[in-house]
């Protein structure tokens, strides 16, 4: 296997207005998602379980928005090292947090 060349094409021209627009899109999306999440709970629009599921979904989407527009992480153009790292971290976080919750709930069910 050959090492990836260090330079990947940076398709976007470095345009200040374009990058400013990115931050604006991110900011607006994040505000909307936050408002949706708080509004959902304040309005009691869904039953508890449904509400929790939608909240989780909103949080995941908002995390992705922050990654994309504020941290500028992008599956196509980011450096491969960083992507590997993020994916591996995701796996470890899943194992650690998921495993912990599984174990502690399991124990609690037998107390």
């Amino acid at each position: 296997m050959e090492m990836e060349p260090d330079q990947l094409p940076d398709s976007e021209a470095e345009d200040p207005r374009q990058e400013f627009r990115e931050y604006c899109i991110g900011g607006i999306l994040a505000v909307l998602l936050t408002l949706a999440a708080f509004g959902l709970v304040a309005s009691h629009w869904l039953d508890t379980l449904g509400c929790l599921m939608v909240l989780t979904l909103l949080a995941v989407v908002q995390v992705l928005v922050h990654f994309r527009y504020f941290l500028h992480i992008d599956l196509r153009r980011s450096h491969r090292d960083e992507l590997q790292l993020i994916l591996f971290t995701g796996l470890i976080l899943f194992l650690m947090a998921g495993g912990t919750i599984w174990i502690l709930w399991n124990l609690n069910s037998r107390m």
């Binding site: 330079q7 094409p9 940076d10 021209a13 990058e19 500028h72 980011s78 450096h79 960083e82």
Partner: peptide, 28 residues
Amino acid sequence: MNKIRKYSRHPGLNMGSTDPETHEAAET
């Protein structure tokens, strides 16, 4: 905006061709 040098992207805002030296140092 015809750049010969292409830049790989790191997390956060990239300096890119506005300051190539800083960009390269920032990468690692």
